[in-house]
Simulated assay, not measured.
Amino acid sequence: MAGTLERVAVRRGQEVREGALLAALDTGAAAAAVRQAEAAVEAARAQLALAEDAFARTERLRREEGASEAQATQAKAQRDLAAAHLAAAQAQAEQARVHLSHHRLVAPFPGVVTRVPDGVGIAVSPGVPLVTLVTTRELVLETSLTQSEAAELRPGARVAVSLPGTGARTADAVVTVVVPAVDAATNRVPVEIAVPNPDGRFLANAYARADLPRGAEREAFRVPAAALVQRTGGHAVWLAGGDGKARALPVRLLGEEGETAVVVPEGGAWPEGLRVVTDPPIGLAEGAALAQVGG
């Protein structure tokens, strides 16, 4: 809505209820348009009253053979046209009232004001944010997981969320969305977690930590960090069999400690008879012969 800012009714950091006035534009021109539209409705209503009276008199004369059929038809058409003009005027008046109501910006939900204009009298353009309002009663934590991690997570799972900066913590957060697609920019699966915040301990837009539910327990393995390679969709460890040929084993990385990495094979078990390639050469391909193999 374009116009001139006349009033800012809130301050930054203020909590507001749903429906509270946030700001208002100058209503001079819009209010005049409403009065003009309402006057047009009254004029159209008067024209309809005259047309209905003329039609009624013409009908009486026609029954008494004092008016022709053509005259009666014309009177009826004039009445219907006046009724249509009244309907159009009423629609324009309603449109003018709606336009006037848009000069008041009210809170669509309870929340906290995080941004207000610098002052009044400025020109406001359509599509340009005027006041920023955020809800704090329930926040949404946006994060992402690897494909293997996301495969074990389902909407509805309870999550513990904490705010390192303040120490705020809740165990009642719930996973609401696990997007069934990989983000092309990060190669990870987006996840959304609803975080209840009735007492306002969690701050909007703050960095938070989520402790996701563990999947089924699996045996983890410690391998040299140099043996770990990043591949599309996750990680892998190069292994060598008794034939001395390379084989990439997809793994889930649990963590790195110095020169070692803790991994879990995607298949759940470590293949028997295969050993880790401690220092895989650049460009190593599946099935390539290996000169050296580390245990």
Results as ranks from 00 to 15, higher is better:
residue 8 V to M: 01
residue 16 V to K: 07
residue 18 E to V: 05
residue 21 L to M: 06
residue 29 A to D: 13
residue 31 A to R: 14
residue 31 A to F: 07
residue 31 A to I: 03
residue 32 A to V: 12
residue 36 Q to T: 15
residue 43 A to D: 05
residue 43 A to F: 08
residue 45 R to A: 15
residue 47 Q to G: 05
residue 47 Q to S: 05
residue 65 E to L: 09
residue 67 A to D: 05
residue 67 A to L: 01
residue 74 Q to T: 06
residue 76 K to N: 12
residue 77 A to L: 14
residue 82 A to Q: 03
residue 84 A to K: 00
residue 86 L to R: 14
residue 96 A to E: 14
residue 97 R to H: 10
residue 97 R to L: 13
residue 100 L to S: 06
residue 100 L to Q: 06
residue 103 H to F: 12
residue 104 R to T: 02
residue 115 R to S: 13
residue 121 G to K: 03
residue 122 I to Q: 12
residue 124 V to Y: 08
residue 126 P to S: 07
residue 127 G to S: 06
residue 128 V to T: 14
residue 145 L to E: 03
residue 150 A to V: 13
residue 153 L to H: 03
residue 155 P to Y: 15
residue 158 R to W: 01
residue 158 R to M: 07
residue 158 R to P: 00
residue 160 A to M: 14
residue 161 V to E: 07
residue 166 T to D: 11
residue 173 A to W: 07
residue 175 V to A: 06
residue 179 V to Y: 10
residue 181 A to K: 13
residue 181 A to L: 01
residue 183 D to M: 02
residue 188 R to H: 10
residue 191 V to D: 07
residue 194 A to Y: 01
residue 201 R to C: 08
residue 203 L to K: 15
residue 210 A to G: 00
residue 216 A to M: 03
residue 217 E to H: 08
residue 218 R to S: 07
residue 219 E to V: 08
residue 229 V to Y: 06
residue 232 T to A: 07
residue 233 G to V: 11
residue 240 A to H: 07
residue 246 A to N: 02
residue 250 P to D: 01
residue 258 G to E: 14
residue 259 E to I: 05
residue 260 T to H: 12
residue 262 V to Q: 09
residue 264 V to D: 05
residue 266 E to N: 06
residue 274 L to V: 09
residue 277 V to F: 01
residue 278 T to W: 04
residue 282 I to K: 08
residue 283 G to C: 09
residue 284 L to M: 11
residue 287 G to D: 07
